[in-house]
Design a protein around this nucleic acid. Structure first.
Length: 578
RNA sequence: GCGCCCAUAGCUCAGCUGGAUAGAGCAUCGGACUUCUAAUCCGACGGUCGGGGGUUCGAAUCCCUCUGGGCGCGCCA
């Protein structure tokens, strides 16, 4: 336990128990502008106990034992308890963090089996920027939750079973399996989809065959299934390409698409009917969860089985919940999906609870993802109005990173391959970090110039901070592992840096609990800022004496590891040099 | 019509679940390279937190209301 906020919380809580018999009161430890932290508990407690806040604070301080942790404790204002940590304590904790494999981030005491459902593209089409954000955010959440000790099940709930497959299969048959066009799903899925769409819209016979093909598909006609499998395989290859370039951890093992639940849909619907949860309305089997109303104030249905006997994705999502609860024994499900589907998930969760498939002990959360907007404030599209293609977007980011790279005079020559890898890491990292650093539910305006900038809360800024640290070790002729310390904090910038380092675990835990990666981004940005201030003020290799140099090298090494680990958990690479 | 989300500096965004004087980056202005990467740093300027009411010791944060935007609302996903 190295996080000061936790240490102080425990101490204050002990004092609360001793002084007032209130060991369970929230000590309300917050960062302070007048000290390192402040405990605000005296004010609400004064209310509860009917005493003056300052008296409460005084009593609290009298019972507070922080002599080994704090150098100063004082009461100020209406009853705030300002806590200033001693540099020795901070240094000791930083040293411990430095010596720890996991940077003193303890694994959670209550590990949960957690499904993170993310990316989930409809593989009939090409991925676009919309998919990018759910993929990036979901992957970061999966990594963070895993690192803090949860059992994470990544779940790529791809759309591989919908109506579009009828026409895709018909198109595949039409162009011939061995043809060049038949490989499009692997290289340019959208082109293939558009082609099918166009045939569907312009040729009634083709459309008719497509509809019949959907029926055959759902009836598991062997020949149709074979073609479908072929298409899905090609799509998976395409996904691999994209995920590989993005550095996303999803693999084939994580794919559990809609087709996976196909044979559970019937029983799901039947059981809902048998339990009396679902009823027939206008020919369709529906559930009307209480509290949801539609346009005319009438009850809003979740359609379980269409009047034609087909199923929608609500049913598929319900089957998915049952599977996860019954077979995977999950404690928590996180759906990293666009904010537009909020109502859908609310209703599906409600139905699952009604049916008894989703016990109170299991949490189901929709981690809403806001839209990415263009410069005009509307859904991000190309000038011609089409969705922006993912690969082209990434290419442009990398190209811009390359231009920036070439503008800067470097001390050494980079061979082409090294340059390519740096520029790729910076370009991709910039795009990913931009998705992560904004609160996930917020929409944000996509802006290449901002995200590729080396100033502000951007990927490149953090990468650059790490690269500068590595540069110091190269110049100094030693590795970060060799910088053992001991850490001593004399300069204000050293102290501020070390203190900030100690907050890493809290940042990770909060990110996992709230499913908000931007918290980790904010932490890392502040860390990089604190490092830069240190860098400007505290010469490392030219430190005044050997002890100071050893201490600063250790701080550099610890910062580098924290920065790298943090970025790694966000899925952002840190190049050795830039 | 109902429901959900949003409105914070000229622009793009934070604000740690109710704490003291609301923060960053960009832009603007002014400084710092014979010094470990200046792709950087340090200042300055800039906000009646959309309006109004309420809850309380204390509100950008919670409640109500109004204004102005976004999204969703029966057989698509």
């Amino acid at each position: 336990m190295s996080d000061p906020q936790h240490v102080l919380a425990a101490r204050v809580q002990a004092a609360l128990g001793a002084a007032f018999g209130e060991p369970d009161a929230d000590p309300v430890i917050r960062p302070s502008q007048f000290a390192d932290f402040q405990a605000n508990v005296a004010l609400p407690l004064a209310k509860k106990l009917g005493r003056k806040p300052r008296d409460i604070a005084a009593d609290l301080v009298a019972h507070l034992d922080v002599s080994d942790v704090c150098s100063k404790v004082e009461i100020s204002g209406p009853g705030f308890v300002n806590l200033t940590l001693s540099p020795e304590w901070i240094a000791g904790q930083a040293q411990a963090m430095h010596g720890d494999e996991r940077l003193a981030v303890e694994k959670t005491e209550a590990p949960q089996t957690t499904v993170v459902e993310y990316s989930s593209p409809n593989i009939a089409k090409e991925m676009h920027v919309g998919h990018l954000r759910t993929t990036i955010v979901g992957d970061a959440l999966a990594r963070v939750l895993e690192f803090v000790g949860h059992h994470v099940i990544r779940d790529n709930h791809i759309g591989d079973w919908g109506t579009p497959y009828g026409m895709l299969i018909e198109l595949l048959l039409e162009v011939g399996e061995g043809s060049a066009e038949a490989r499009l799903p692997e290289t340019d899925p959208n082109a293939f989809y558009q082609m099918a769409r166009q045939r569907f819209d312009s040729d009634a016979a083709f459309a008719q065959r497509s509809r019949e093909r959907v029926v055959k598909l759902q009836a598991h006609d062997p020949d149709t299934i074979r073609h479908w499998e072929r298409l899905v395989e090609l799509s998976k290859t395409y996904l691999h390409t994209v995920y590989g370039r993005l550095g996303v951890t999803l693999t084939d093992e994580d794919i559990r698409g809609e087709s996976f639940y196909d044979d559970m849909l019937g029983v799901t619907a039947d059981e809902l009917r048998d339990k009396g949860v679902a009823e027939i309305s206008e020919g369709a089997l529906c559930v009307f969860p209480p509290g949801f109303t539609g346009r005319e104030g009438d009850p809003l249905p979740v359609i379980i089985r269409k009047s034609d006997g087909g199923y929608n994705y609500s049913t598929s999502d319900l089957a998915t919940i049952r599977y996860r609860v019954d077979k995977l024994d999950v404690d928590r499900m996180i759906y990293v999906v666009g904010a537009q589907q909020a109502l859908h998930f609310q209703m599906v969760f409600a139905v699952a609870r009604m049916a008894g498939w989703l016990p109170e002990s299991v949490s189901a959360e929709h981690a809403q993802i806001g839209n990415v907007l263009g410069p005009d404030g509307k859904i991000f599209r190309t000038r011609s109005g089409k969705p922006v293609k993912l690969t082209e977007l990434l290419d442009e980011a990398v190209e811009r990173a390359g231009a920036a790279f070439d503008e800067v005079p470097h001390e050494e020559e980079f061979d082409e391959e090294t340059r390519r890898r740096i520029v790729e890491a910076v370009g991709i990292g910039a795009v990913k970090y931009a998705d992560l650093s904004v609160a996930r539910g917020s929409e944000y305006i996509f802006d290449f110039d901002r995200m590729i900038s080396f100033r502000g809360n951007t990927g490149p800024y953090l990468q650059y901070a790490a690269a500068r640290i590595r540069s110091i070790f190269r110049k100094g002729g030693l590795t970060p592992e060799e910088a053992a310390g001991p850490i001593v904090l004399d300069h204000e910038a050293e102290r501020a840096l070390a203190l900030h380092l100690l907050g890493f675990g809290t940042a990770l835990r909060q990110t996992g609990e709230t499913t908000e990666p931007h918290r980790l981004c904010a932490y890392l940005f502040e860390l990089a800022s604190a490092y830069t201030t240190f860098y400007e003020n505290c010469p490392v290799l030219r430190a005044p004496d050997e002890a100071t140099k050893a201490s600063r090298l250790a701080l550099c090494a610890l910062t580098l590891r924290t920065l790298s680990k943090g970025l790694e958990l966000l899925g952002v690479e840190t190049p050795e040099r830039m």
